[in-house]
């Protein structure tokens, strides 16, 4: 069995739920079957080929992208978003950098002028969905079980469940993880990576892949700058070495400092799509 990811573990079930909803819907566990079919195939073959003493070797050219299944579904999501004139934002960060806090503030500030929706990704609990619900936006919680990232299939199902209207803004809060989400295209319009000032200013150098794949970098918890050794100039310099095209916002989801620039970027991109 696949001990590490728990794909052989019957408890590892992905669920997608609305706040207050009891019944849970199973999406995929891992699809690949362990074995059986192929064993019997092998046996069959052996009995037929009994008298052949040496096997024939040949090469099968596969040349297939490993992420093709996900990329295909991501393309489908993108088509769906385009058709509905939806701006979709994938929010990625370490656990606790402030993704949900930023969304709570954003919802309260913008919900009167924009149709907002949220897909929440966490391994366990409805906690974040309940926070978003309270802030006042329709939300679906995806629990990934042992999974360390959202994939396009989960987003596809979550978005269907939200029944989003045309001309909307959908936030997708990825599972708190600075590594794994970066490889999985969800069909989003823009990618945002959040780093908080308590995490150390060398994060872009330590985790370059996620910074490379992002369009926007939000530096959060700047209200804590007086208490930590975090050099904002340095973190930007490092992040720009990794990704020359990053745009930065310095914010505090606690004191609201810098948030109006973030809202400005959102509305501007919403209107431009």
């Amino acid at each position: 069995m696949c001990g590490t990811c728990g794909c052989g573990d019957p408890k590892n079930v992905v669920s997608i739920s609305l706040p207050g909803e009891k019944q849970k819907i199973e999406v995929h566990t891992h699809e690949h079957k362990h074995g059986d079919k192929f064993h019997s195939h092998e046996h069959e073959h052996h009995t037929h080929d009994h008298d052949h003493s040496h096997a024939q070797q040949r090469v099968i050219e596969v040349e297939q992208d490993i992420l093709s299944a996900n990329n295909l579904l991501a393309a489908r999501n993108r088509g769906y978003f385009d058709a509905k004139n939806v701006l979709s934002i994938n929010l990625m960060s370490s656990p606790g950098s402030g993704k949900t806090s930023l969304l709570e503030k954003t919802i309260v500030a913008l919900k009167e002028q924009l149709n907002l929706y949220v897909v929440e990704g966490d391994q366990q609990t409805m906690n974040d969905a309940n926070r978003i619900d309270k802030a006042g936006a329709p939300v679906v919680q995806v629990n990934t079980g042992n999974g360390c990232h959202l994939d396009a299939d989960m987003v596809n199902q979550a978005v269907k469940k939200l029944q989003i209207k045309e001309n909307s803004l959908v936030f997708i809060e990825n599972v708190g993880n600075l590594v794994c989400p970066s490889l999985f295209d969800l069909g989003e319009s823009k990618r945002v990576v959040i780093i908080s000032v308590t995490e150390g200013d060398d994060k872009p150098l330590k985790y370059p892949v996620i910074f490379k794949s992002a369009d926007i970098c939000i530096i959060n918890k700047i209200d804590l700058l007086p208490y930590v050794d975090f050099d904002v100039k340095k973190v930007k310099e490092y992040a720009l070495q990794v990704n020359h095209h990053l745009t930065f916002f310095e914010v505090s989801a606690k004191t609201d400092e810098g948030l109006s620039e973030w809202y400005g970027w959102l509305t501007e991109n919403f209107n431009a799509k």
Partner: peptide
């Protein structure tokens, strides 16, 4: 990120 080939 590719599966290139199988030798069978």
């Amino acid at each position: 990120l590719r599966v290139k080939s199988l030798l069978v």
